[in-house]
Amino acid sequence: MAWDWQVFCKETTTGEVISGCLAGFAKGQDQTYLNWLITAWGWTLAVAILSLIVALVAGLVVGTLRTLPNSPWLVRFANSWVELFRNVPLLVQIFLWYFVVPGIFPAMKDTPPLLLVILALGLFTSARIAEQVRAGIQALPRGQRYAGLALGLTTAQTYRYVLLPMALRIVIPPLTSESMNIIKNSSVAFAVSITELTFFARQSGEETSAPVQMYMAVTVLYAISAFVINRVMRVIERRTQVPGFVAAGGMGGH
């Protein structure tokens, strides 16, 4: 079967092949499917990066709360957070934020769909990150907590200066997986008409009758995005790894 890769140089409204596939980025020029593909990739990266920021902040807070001593109500709240966002399918959460939440809170009716998707994906991922942060803190020897308190540090200071810096360094490998997963999970944004890669592939495939080329191009861009994230996180892991930690006690050491 012959595949016509010139489909990416076709103008999106007339279907005519135009010279200079990237001409659409110049003001006043027609937009090609290649222009649209690159723009969709940008939206995918924007959704993924902003959602990851939300997930890291919320996951760090919730994961820390799950390990607080003598704070049963905060621990129950954090556990409920994890169970709620982890056990409800992501697509359902997208629809809840898009259709239900604005109905309950009228002030959110004018909230851009992009922001709602970022919140939904970020909070969904935060539950998974919270579990990893909790595991990282509990993997540290208990003596580190006691040593911080014995030095006169408050519980908050012990977490800030002693426990969290170590815990975050040892949970980078699972955080790498979550960072890659959030790129793939960003595809659910197509359900509320965010023009990201999956939306592009579906729409352009129907318009051009060339779905194979479109989905192959999108697949390559997803793979490139995940690979770059993996490489970046590997560099961070090598530079922040705790020397001898696994040999001294590993993730289960107390």
Rank of each mutant, 00 (worst) to 15 (best):
V218T: 15
L34P: 02
S179C: 11
T240I: 04
A147K: 07
N70C: 11
D30M: 00
L119T: 06
S209D: 11
I104Y: 12
H254W: 05
Q93W: 06
N185G: 15
V82T: 08
N181W: 01
C9M: 10
W41R: 00
L153A: 05
R128G: 11
K184T: 13
L163A: 07
W41D: 10
M108S: 14
T111V: 13
T64S: 15
I137P: 04
V188Y: 00
T32E: 04
L74R: 09
A78G: 14
A147Y: 11
F8E: 01
G252P: 08
G24Y: 01
S204W: 00
I49Q: 05
V171Q: 06
A135K: 09
L34S: 05
L116N: 02
N35K: 03
A248Q: 14
I182N: 00
F99T: 06
V101T: 03
F95Q: 09
V57H: 01
R134C: 09
S187R: 01
D110K: 04
M108E: 04
A156Q: 09
F200E: 06
G136M: 03
Q213H: 09
E11C: 06
W43C: 04
G42V: 04
G24T: 02
A23E: 14
I18H: 07
A191R: 01
G136C: 14
I38C: 06
P89T: 07
E178T: 00
L91W: 00
L149R: 03
A2V: 04
V188Q: 00
G59P: 02
R169W: 03
G249V: 13
T13R: 13
V133K: 00
R169T: 01
D110C: 02
A150L: 11
A58K: 01
F124R: 02
I182E: 05
V47K: 00
I104W: 07
L84S: 08
R142H: 09
R86K: 13
L164F: 07
N35E: 06
G136P: 12
S187L: 10
V242P: 10
Q203E: 12
M233E: 05
V162G: 07
V212K: 11
R66P: 03
Q31G: 04
R66K: 09
Q93H: 08
F227N: 12
T176I: 10
S209N: 14
L163E: 11
C9H: 06
T158M: 09
I137A: 07
S209H: 13
L151W: 09
L123T: 04
Q213P: 13
L151E: 12
F85D: 02
K27Y: 11
A58G: 04
A130R: 01
T14W: 09
P174H: 08
M1C: 05
